[in-house]
């Protein structure tokens, strides 16, 4: 069917492209202080010792983001949110409060909802991280996204990815939530556009659709 504006397929394809474009490894390593390029993390570390002995040196972290193994050279004070945005080019985790008080930057880490602004990327070695882009590319979750859009579970849309990730976490743990379960699971996500009841509506509709789909497949 023809869709007005950006279609579900368009958006999911964009998410897929963003994930594919993630620079999971840096071929050359540039000194963030003076811009000098190096071939390896070891060379950069040596450069710091020699040239910027007082400065905080970058660290190397390996984690899996949206199914892709990443080896990242980051500054130790960077949050997971910053790394997702500035190193990996993902915009799904949004910055609203930057203090773990609003839920807009929610991602899934090792299966649990996690506020990416409130976690140091340097602590995430070996972790598996899934962002809203990673959810969008899984056909299983398209009904959830579709229901969100059909029910306007968003107005300005800024907090929406955080809600969607929290909703996905809920459904992972509890595939048949009640309205109360939904309210509780989304209670760490702030929206100022008045969409709260829309989320329950969308999630419940997605659940019923997904159950039907499951039965048909079986």
């Amino acid at each position: 069917m023809k869709t007005a504006g950006i279609s579900l397929a368009d958006a999911c394809a964009q998410a897929q492209a963003r994930i594919e474009k993630m620079p999971t490894r840096q071929k050359t390593v540039t000194c963030p202080l003076c811009g000098e390029p190096f071939l390896s993390f070891g060379d950069l570390t040596a450069h710091y010792l020699a040239v910027h002995p007082e400065a905080v040196a970058p660290v190397e972290v390996r984690m899996t983001v949206n199914g892709r193994d990443c080896c990242l050279i980051i500054e130790p004070q960077m949050t997971l949110k910053e790394v997702l945005q500035f190193h990996l080019g993902l915009t799904g985790a949004k910055q609203m409060c930057d203090r773990g008080q609003c839920g807009s930057c929610t991602v899934i880490m090792d299966g649990k909802p996690t506020l990416s602004c409130n976690v140091l990327a340097a602590d995430c070695g070996g972790k598996t991280v899934e962002t809203v882009e990673g959810i969008a590319v899984q056909p299983k979750w398209r009904p959830l996204i579709d229901a969100y859009c059909k029910w306007d579970a968003m107005q300005c849309g800024y907090c929406t990815p955080g809600f969607l990730v929290a909703a996905k976490c809920l459904l992972d743990r509890n595939p048949h939530p009640t309205e109360e379960d939904i309210k509780e699971a989304l209670s760490g996500n702030i929206c100022i556009c008045g969409t709260y009841p829309r989320h329950s509506q969308a999630i419940l509709e997605a659940v019923s659709y997904m159950v039907k789909g499951g039965e048909q497949n079986a």
């Binding site: 007005a4 998410a15 809203v132 969008a136 996204i145 579709d146 859009c149 059909k150 969607l164």
Partner: peptide
């Protein structure tokens, strides 16, 4: 009727001011 940009917003690919790098 889904919003014209709703799918982009929900999937996180819509870029707001703070998202630009």
């Amino acid at each position: 009727l889904p919003g014209l940009t709703s799918y982009a917003m929900a999937t996180g690919v819509a870029k707001y001011g703070t998202d630009y790098t």
